[in-house]
Simulated scan of single mutants.
Amino acid sequence: MNSQIFSRPDRDAASHWLKSYYFARAAVALVWFAAAFTLGKTSPSIAGALLVAYPAYDALANFIDAQRSGGLKFNRSQAINVAISILATIAVAAALTRDLHAVMAVFGAWAIIAGLLQLITGVVRWKIGAQWAMILAGAQSALVGVFFIKQATGPATIGIKDIAPYAAFGALYFFASAVWLTVAQARRDARRTA
């Protein structure tokens, strides 16, 4: 199924998949956020593992979504996002051997690129519905990335607590999209049975 061209049944199937996908991504982001503010604040090794896991999970999630939505060939922005997130995972692991300023710089660059790619994916999927939240999330991610890079070049102490709100906002946008799709599907179902 090409993500750019949808018949009604394809749109309904895509909407159903994305609803589940967005709920799952919101839940994972919330768990990551909670772990960052509890375990990550008290254990540098757990914080490091969480920081590496975040872009790794993004790569995996984008890969699965692209595969369920017609494949990487038809979802180029996601295919690029998978590659960028894999590179970010490696770069975060390498930056952890230096300091958290380097990690923040990597997160910033990744947030900018991944955010713009998410924005593009949202525009391509506009007809499915609920993509306004994904477009906003992508734009905000890019802006936060600029802020992360600015923080990385400053003298202030940096920790996982500075990155964790990024995950919380991501969870909010994914949840909003999932709820929007759920309501839209319920309305369509009600019209069909009326």
Rank of each mutant, 00 (worst) to 15 (best):
A109I: 14
M134C: 04
I135T: 04
L18D: 02
I46T: 11
Q118V: 03
A194W: 14
T121S: 14
A164V: 05
T157I: 13
G129E: 02
W110M: 03
T97S: 14
V92M: 09
I128V: 15
L136I: 13
R76G: 06
S7T: 15
A88N: 07
A142Q: 09
L72G: 00
F74N: 14
A142C: 12
I112E: 07
L30N: 09
S69D: 03
D58P: 01
A95D: 02
K161A: 11
L136S: 13
S43W: 09
A167H: 08
R187E: 14
T182A: 11
T157M: 14
T38Y: 03
I120R: 14
A56Y: 11
V146Y: 03
I113P: 07
L100R: 07
I80R: 03
F6C: 04
L116Q: 13
K41A: 05
T157E: 15
R192P: 05
V52N: 04
G154V: 12
W110L: 01
V183I: 15
W126V: 00
I163S: 01
P44T: 00
G115Y: 09
S85F: 02
R188C: 00
G145M: 03
Q67H: 09
V146W: 04
A53G: 08
Y173D: 03
A130R: 04
I90L: 15
W126F: 15
T42E: 03
T42M: 07
A91F: 10
A88F: 07
A83N: 01
V123R: 15
P165Q: 01
M104E: 06
V179A: 08
A13E: 05
L136V: 14
L100C: 02
A14Y: 08
S85K: 02
K150M: 05
T89L: 06
A27W: 12
G108W: 02
A184T: 13
S15G: 10
V144K: 00
R25C: 13
I86A: 04
A102N: 06
R125K: 01
A13P: 11
R191I: 11
K127N: 14
V31D: 01
V124I: 10
Q131I: 06
R125E: 13
S69T: 02
F174Q: 03
A26W: 04
Q185H: 14
A14I: 01
P55C: 01
P9A: 00
A56H: 10
A56Q: 10
F174D: 00
L172A: 14
I149H: 05
Q78L: 14
I158C: 04
W180Y: 11
A94F: 15
A168I: 09
A49L: 10
Q4T: 10
R191H: 13
F147Q: 06
G129P: 12
P55S: 02
A184I: 04
I128R: 04
Q151E: 06
Q185L: 09
I113V: 15
A137E: 10
V123Q: 11
Y54V: 05
R76V: 12
S85G: 06
Y166G: 02
A190S: 14
L136Y: 09
M104W: 07
F169G: 03
